[in-house]
Design a protein around this nucleic acid. Structure first.
Length: 383
RNA sequence: AUGGAAUUGGUGAAGUGGUUAACACGCUAGAUUGUGGCUCUAGUAUGCAAGGGUUCGAUCCCCUUAUUCCAUC
């Protein structure tokens, strides 16, 4: 079946939306956070552990699975769900983002994108049709259109050219799309130009996708700019379809995104920083490698219900991380993903109670203290 | 006891009669946003066993002492 979005309530003072999304594998509440499992695995975690975290949709990556093990092998296994034994919904990214990090501008043509494999340097060519064909075979629940994610800053001329091309690519992908149990999303681009975001969102809407993504954020702009890009996008998207802000998962960015009408987020941040020894807490991110935690026999967070917080101390997790024991990264991944999912649970309550701005103020005060987070730069990828 | 060799940071070590003593590990911090999987960035010896001497200048040359290792009795 195609996914179905049900809008239940809008928050009184903001554009925040409470809703549900019906999928092949159950109905889930939004706003929601999707853990990332690039290569058909959320690094270090089993499906059972993901269910315990109350994860709903997870993300896998077309580009990576295309190269290894190949879409035909996964098709032979009976599709992505059977292959990895995940009994929840799966969304596949289109490979557009890898283009952004692996290709050079001159390799992008109307037909598709030339780039080199990050594994062995093999020359590769990806087109909108090819991306969709792979995703159809992977048999994920939601496929993404193949888009161009441009760096920031970008000139108006280049941004416009790119937006128009991405629109043509979206149309081409949709035309060859042929998996009836799969849904297809379009991706809004347009850098930080409101008229381009508007053009992108409106043209995609005319094509009637099953949901819409916001791409091209978190590519080197500051947070204030990112929030503007999000506003420019949700403003022109239909209310009866789900909105997904791609690649965003800093806690405050999730809050700001929800306030601007975003329903779904995904991000590698919780698992990546976990592997590097960091944990989200409501009083800011902490680095367990810091010597101050050596004798700290308290939990990561007192009120967290995750397996790591229920069973282990900071001193122990620090010990695991400093010695590079696998369990350390696993425990921090569990905690960090649960932290973001709990955040979305809180935000859903706030939408019901019409007090999301209060929640945000309190969150920022706890998390950032006096830090001016709005001027913080997002990471410039692809360099 | 005699002869020989050595002694450089927390560790393994490179090195030179003359601006900031290489590198690695460790340690201390920081980074990380549609994942190029243990990554990246920065800091980390006012010091070259101790004392004395030669020299414009010594970690580097000489002497004494201490310690360690090897060989022989």
């Amino acid at each position: 079946m195609k996914i179905k979005y049900n809008l239940l309530k809008e928050e009184k003072e903001t554009k925040a939306r409470l809703g549900t999304i019906e999928t092949n594998y159950g109905t889930y509440d939004t706003p929601m956070f999707m853990p990332v499992g690039t290569r058909a695995s959320v690094k270090g975690l089993s499906p059972d552990e993901l269910y315990d975290l109350k994860a709903g949709i997870i993300l896998a990556n077309t580009y990576h699975l295309w190269l290894r093990p190949g879409e035909d092998l996964i098709n032979e296994a009976g599709g992505l769900h059977k292959f990895m034994n995940y009994k929840g919904p799966i969304l596949t990214d289109s490979g557009g983002f890898q283009v952004f990090s692996l290709a050079r501008p001159k390799d992008i043509t109307e037909e598709g994108v030339k780039f080199k494999s990050h594994i062995d340097g093999t020359k590769l060519f990806l087109t909108p049709e090819k991306s969709i064909e792979i995703q159809n075979k992977l048999d994920s629940d939601i496929a993404m259109s193949f888009d161009e994610c441009i760096p920031y800053p970008a000139t108006y001329e280049y941004s416009k050219e790119s937006v128009l091309r991405t629109l043509r690519w979206a149309k081409r992908g949709k035309d060859v799309f042929n998996n009836p149990r799969q849904s297809l999303f379009g991706i809004v681009q347009g850098s930080d130009y409101e008229d381009l975001r508007k053009l992108s969102a409106e043209e995609l809407s005319k094509m009637d996708f099953d949901g819409y993504s916001i791409g091209g954020t978190s590519v080197g702009e500051n947070k204030e700019t990112m929030y503007r890009m999000v506003s420019y996008s949700t403003k022109y998207l239909p209310k009866d379809k789900v909105r997904y802000l791609m690649g965003v998962g800093d806690p405050i960015d999730i809050i700001e995104g929800v306030i601007r009408g975003v329903d779904i987020f995904d991000c590698v941040l919780p698992t990546r920083i976990a592997r590097h020894g960091n944990a989200f807490t409501k009083y800011g991110k902490i680095n367990l490698k810091n010597s101050k935690f050596k004798h700290d026999f308290t939990k990561l967070e007192d009120d967290c219900d995750c397996y790591a917080c229920k069973n282990f101390t900071k001193a122990y997790i620090r010990h695991l991380i400093t010695l590079d024991e696998m369990l350390g990264a696993r425990l921090l991944s569990i905690h960090n993903i649960r932290f973001l999912i709990r955040l979305t649970e809180d935000l859903r309550e706030c939408i019901k109670n019409d007090n999301i701005l209060e929640y945000k103020e309190k969150f920022i005060k706890n998390y950032y203290g006096d830090i001016d987070y709005l001027s913080k730069k997002t990471t410039g990828q692809g360099d």
